[in-house]
């Protein structure tokens, strides 16, 4: 029977250290006394094993969450992790490095982006991975959805045959470029491969036709913007989300918590 007692003594390691230190010796005494009085050894061992498994789990659990302070800490950590996980998947922060979206977005604007928006509509801003270099993130405005016909006449965007009213856009140059401002004209300068492809494949009757699965985007600062005119269509699968608000802007305190549209 000595072996049995030793096995029980080892089994007591299932309990938390403090519990074992305080009650271990007494539990061994009880075990021996009960063993001596038990009419059936197998039934006694079964009942003891059951008791040991259930209560050691219970004691370990209480030991983990024993004080109110640790419990609050555990809850707080859990909530923080949850919020962080939700935040990282649904909202992301970006900073605006160029003037291509002025006057809507200024250099130094820190943006929160709603990442749940995957299908931006015409006239909405969109944040996307740049297809020529996926490590770069761009922000532009959606002008054309799949099937839309787009041309630019003397800086005026014509969408599906109608002049587009764009209160968000601005032109800084009086100079009229034969490509930038009369699109799709003849690009005298180098354009990205995707733009060259767009010009060779998707131009019909002097208009660009947006293919299925793509977006045509332009910067609001029309004369200072690298956009679909120069890098071609944006694959919808590259869309990260829609800008939601400026949470902070360096040098423009009045833009704090400004909703962007």
């Amino acid at each position: 029977m000595r072996l049995l007692y030793e096995i029980y003594a080892i089994a007591l390691y299932a309990y938390p250290r403090e519990f074992r230190a305080r009650f271990g010796r007494e539990m061994e005494q009880v075990f021996r006394a009960r063993r001596a009085a038990a009419p059936s050894l197998p039934r006694f061992l079964l009942a003891t094993a059951r008791d040991l498994i259930i209560t050691s789990i219970k004691e370990r659990f209480t030991a983990m969450t024993t004080t109110r302070a640790t419990r609050s800490l555990a809850y707080a950590t859990g909530i923080a992790v949850l919020l962080l996980a939700v935040g990282v998947t649904m909202v992301q922060a970006y900073v605006i490095p160029t003037s291509s979206m002025e006057p809507s977005l200024l250099i130094g604007d820190h943006l929160l982006v709603n990442k749940t928006v995957r299908n931006p509509q015409r006239g909405e801003m969109v944040v996307f991975r740049y297809h020529e270099d996926p490590s770069q993130t761009f922000i532009k405005r959606v002008i054309g959805l799949p099937g839309d016909r787009i041309r630019i006449e003397n800086k005026q965007v014509i969408l599906n045959g109608e002049r587009l009213v764009e209160d968000y856009a601005r032109n800084l140059d009086s100079y009229v470029d034969s490509y930038r401002d009369n699109f799709p004209g003849d690009p005298k300068l180098h354009v990205e491969t995707a733009a060259a492809e767009m010009l060779s494949r998707n131009v019909k009757n002097g208009e660009v036709v947006v293919p299925e699965g793509d977006l045509f985007v332009l910067g609001d600062n029309r004369d200072r913007s690298l956009d679909s005119r120069f890098f071609g269509f944006v694959p919808q699968s590259n869309v990260i989300g829609r800008p939601w608000m400026v949470y902070w802007s360096s040098g423009h305190w009045d833009r704090t918590l400004l909703e962007v549209r």
Binding site: F19, R22, F23, M27, F31, R34, T48, D51, L52, T55
Partner: peptide, 24 residues
Amino acid sequence: MQDVARQTNDALQMGPGTLYGCLK
């Protein structure tokens, strides 16, 4: 343990883990 068994006509048979968990 013995007294509890007597009180309850052996209906409540506490193991040592239950007993000392309660005592704690």
